[in-house]
Design a protein around this nucleic acid. Structure first.
Length: 412
DNA sequence: GATCTTGTAGCATCGATCAC
DNA sequence: GTGATCGATGCTACAAGATC
């Protein structure tokens, strides 16, 4: 449950349960005015099911649900909390998931097809990185595309991708001192200059100036084997097709609010929400969102929206490439966009997140609905009657360590 | 079936750089 | 010169496919 949806600051529900089980009785009311993702609510509800995989072992605990009142200022926080605690029908959720994903696949699935001309990932250190002829299957399914910043040599002004000069594939590392392939000058990594280009933004319907990024590597699957390839003309054509389709399907233009995190990427031209996404991934997110919002059943609609917000950071340019290929993903607590990013196959990522959520919420956490969630300030709690709370468990905001409202804006 | 490889996810650490 | 910040990287855990 803890991993169903990421958030900047979460307290594991198993840790909270130890306090609640110690200090309260079944039926008591627990209040959390800074509920965040609602882990206090999960903890209170799961006091009903001690001895399962999702509860801690606590000796001498009195089993039985504790009721919770949860509130938070942030809409995405209470949205996450409410989805962890609302009724969840696994089979309906999974069939709606298949329907939505199938529809989007039918419309745009071909954009993730790529010609099978690469090398196996496990051979990447031993073979030349070039286009190969393969017998049998001619097509693969893209897993992720590696995009790189374009940089300029300060000595000779030649332009090249950061990936080509900085990534040492043999040693799984980034080079500190980079040799320019044009003029042979050795220039520290930090001295290479960013290259900007003026491009047409179909969502803003005007030209914008952005840091130039280029696809440099495609990781794809044939059968169940991973391959890598250099992007070719077909891949480039599909990328342009995705950008064209955005005119009719794209997300609405939403300017990023003022703030340290929201504006940290303004110098490289990320000024609106959709700039966090590469065109193809933007298209799939927008198409999924449209179909989900059309679903009539509110529980299914919210559960799928929940899976979509859980997917957003991983489907965006926040997903970092690591030269050592360990870990990766967004850097938590920031909206930092790296020079090397790996936006993945959105449908596959969405389905993986949805499957995790389905597993976490089966059985539903709070079938008795013993909780109240509201989006409000903890400074005005007049709607809670006096002497109605037995225990307060709260984990207040981390001061200036996290810019909550800005980080949450990305989802909200 | 055991072990290795690849990938995902999360959090902590620490050296380089920056602001003052 | 120094403290704060940035962001690459160290490390853990886990899952699933590939290989022997």
């Amino acid at each position: 449950i803890y991993n169903a949806h990421s958030y900047h600051t979460k307290v594991p529900h198993k840790a909270i349960m130890r306090y609640i089980l110690h200090y309260t009785e079944p039926g008591d009311v627990v209040f959390d005015g800074f509920c965040g993702t609602g882990m206090t609510g999960v903890a209170g509800a799961l006091c009903e099911e001690l001895g399962t995989q999702r509860t801690p072992h606590v000796s001498h605990a009195v089993q039985g649900q504790r009721f919770t009142i949860l509130s938070d200022l942030s809409p995405i926080a209470t949205f996450i909390a409410s989805n962890l605690l609302r009724p969840f029908a696994r089979s309906s959720f999974l069939s709606a998931l298949e329907k939505v994903c199938g529809d989007v696949e039918n419309d745009f699935g071909h954009l993730y097809r790529t010609q099978h001309t690469g090398w196996r990932v496990r051979d990447r250190k031993h073979v030349e990185h070039k286009a190969y002829e393969h017998r049998g299957e001619k097509w693969g399914s893209v897993e992720f595309t590696l995009y790189s910043d374009v940089v300029r040599c300060p000595e000779c002004s030649s332009e090249i991708t950061y990936y080509e000069v900085a990534v040492d594939e043999q040693n799984d590392a980034l080079r500190k001192d980079i040799r320019c392939p044009q003029c042979n000058a050795v220039v520290p990594e930090t001295k290479w200059e960013p290259v900007y280009s003026t491009v047409f933004d179909p969502i803003l319907n005007r030209t914008i100036r952005q840091l130039r990024i280029e696809p440099v590597l495609i990781n794809y699957t044939v059968g169940s084997t991973r391959y890598e390839k250099l992007p070719d003309a077909h891949d480039k054509a599909l990328s342009e097709e995705a950008a064209q389709l955005l005119r009719s399907v794209g997300l609405p233009p939403i300017a990023l609010i003022p703030g340290r995190e929201t504006q940290r990427n303004a110098p490289i031209g990320i000024t609106h929400l959709h700039h966090f996404f590469t065109p193809r991934e933007h298209l799939f997110i927008a198409a999924l969102l449209r179909r989900i919002l059309d679903i009539g059943d509110i529980d299914i609609r919210f559960a799928l929206l929940f899976a979509l917000t859980a997917t957003l950071p991983y489907a965006s340019r926040l997903r970092r490439f690591r030269a050592d290929r360990k870990g990766g993903g967004p850097l938590s607590g920031t909206l930092y966009v790296s020079s090397l990013v790996t936006p993945p196959h959105v449908i596959k990522t969405f389905k993986r997140n949805a499957a995790t959520i389905a597993d976490c919420l089966t059985p539903p956490v709070d079938p008795r609905r013993g909780h109240i969630i509201s989006t409000q300030s903890a400074g005005h709690l007049a709607n809670i009657p006096s002497n109605s709370v037995d225990y307060i468990f709260t984990d207040p905001p981390f001061g200036h360590n996290f810019d909550y409202s800005e980080l949450n804006f990305f989802w909200e």
